[in-house]
């Protein structure tokens, strides 16, 4: 299983999205995003914004990073702390 996390405003768009997905061959953040497109087009439009960062097991990665079983994949909009 891959755990999915959507932070900040992305969380509002991700309502109804499953919190985890099955691990499959060739999975990357880009394929996860594309798989959401049919049911969650507004979310995918937000995820496609250039400022959105992706982390895999809490490390920033690119859209083509391979994802393996047991990973935690998070989508991070621009941060606004402090």
């Amino acid at each position: 299983m891959i755990k999915l996390l959507f932070f900040g405003r992305l969380g509002d768009f991700a309502e109804g999205v499953s919190a985890s997905i099955d691990a499959t061959e060739g999975l990357t953040p880009a394929t996860v995003r594309d798989a959401l497109a049919a049911d969650h087009p507004a979310l995918v439009a937000e995820l496609s914004q250039p400022q959105v960062l992706i982390s895999l097991n809490q490390m920033i990665v690119g859209w083509d990073q391979p994802i393996f079983d047991g990973a935690e994949l998070a989508f991070l909009p621009p941060v606004t702390g402090g």
Binding site: F7, G8, R9, D12, L76, P77, V79, T80, G81, G82
Partner: peptide
């Protein structure tokens, strides 16, 4: 911290919530 640490702020203005 303001540009790299993973915090997100949401405000409530007159009962309407939105992300900063």
């Amino acid at each position: 911290l303001k540009t790299k640490a993973t915090f997100w702020k949401k405000v409530d203005q007159n009962g309407q919530q939105h992300w900063i």
